[in-house]
């Protein structure tokens, strides 16, 4: 087990060095998310009102969730690049843990997402968003957010190995995830939806994550009577654990065979 950890550590170290050496990547990972915060918070916030509070307070959790999803193609493209590089043959000819390359990529990308969160939080606080809970709950919220980012990074890694071209890696994740995103409580409270659609949206993992963030940060909730809507934190943890349990082994299995073309 210690050797496995050592392999993971080494590959995470490699990815963090990469990030430090690609300042353009840091810029692209922070600027657009900050623009989203202003766009949704100030512009939409001034036009949309929700029953139980301020839309600006409500939407922050949604934007945080959205940014984690829109980063999925980056991980997919990065994973595809890793595989296309002769370096993977070297890694595969070493007596190392096969999961290490993917762990390095997903942890590295999650670290980048943490930087994104810091930038977004700063802009959010500037435009008047507030966390109305304790420090512990606030941090727990960011913990769930990053766990969601980590889970989405694994989804990206898996998709990156399933597709064969950078174009597909760039578009496929959005095709799969954006409908899920819109059919959730990320952007809107679900009260106005027809019953069946509302049930789907309430049990959607993205609603669970957005709901958990709102609960932990003391922001206005999307409201709802279902078990999922009333217990967003356990639901979010359950969903993320479930997705990781499926996606991580699938991704590692794909990595073992992906380069044997």
């Amino acid at each position: 087990m210690t050797t496995v950890l050592e392999d993971w550590r080494a590959l995470v170290w490699r990815h963090l060095l990469h990030l430090r050496r690609m300042p353009d990547k840091l810029v692209s990972a922070t600027v657009l998310p900050m623009v989203f915060v202003v766009l949704f918070g100030v512009l939409f916030g001034s036009a949309i009102s929700i029953p139980n509070g301020d839309y600006r307070e409500f939407i922050m959790a949604g934007i945080f969730t959205q940014v984690m999803i829109t980063a999925v193609p980056n991980t997919a493209i990065g994973t595809l690049e890793d595989l296309g590089n002769g370096l993977v043959d070297r890694f595969r000819s070493l007596p190392m843990t096969p999961s290490a390359v993917l762990v390095g990529r997903t942890v590295g990308d999650t670290a980048l997402r943490a930087v994104t969160c810091v930038a977004m939080t700063a802009v959010g606080l500037l435009i008047g968003w507030r966390i109305d809970s304790g420090v512990g709950a606030a941090l727990a919220g960011f913990g769930i957010l990053l766990l969601f980012g980590f889970t989405m990074a694994w989804v990206g890694a898996l998709l990156g190995m399933k597709v064969r071209s950078p174009e597909a890696a760039a578009s496929m994740p959005s095709v799969l995830l954006m409908p899920l995103m819109f059919l959730s409580s990320a952007y809107i409270p679900l009260g106005g939806l027809p019953g069946w659609l509302r049930a789907i949206a309430e049990w959607n993992p993205i609603s669970a994550v957005a709901g958990a963030l709102r609960e932990l940060w003391g922001n206005p909730a999307a409201a709802g009577d279902s078990f999922a809507a009333r217990n967003p934190v356990p639901m979010a943890l359950l969903w993320l654990a479930l997705i990781l349990a499926v996606v991580v082994p699938a991704a590692v299995r794909n990595y073992r065979t992906a380069a044997t073309r």
Binding site: D7, A10, L17, M22, L87, R90, L94, P95, M96
Partner: peptide, 24 residues
């Protein structure tokens, strides 16, 4: 292999260190 399998975003020393660690 046919293409130099080195990590272009690491220095020469870092490349070798990484391989050494992965060789346990």
């Amino acid at each position: 292999g046919q293409y130099a399998a080195v990590d272009q975003r690491l220095t020469g020393r870092e490349n070798l260190y990484l391989i050494g660690v992965l060789h346990r």
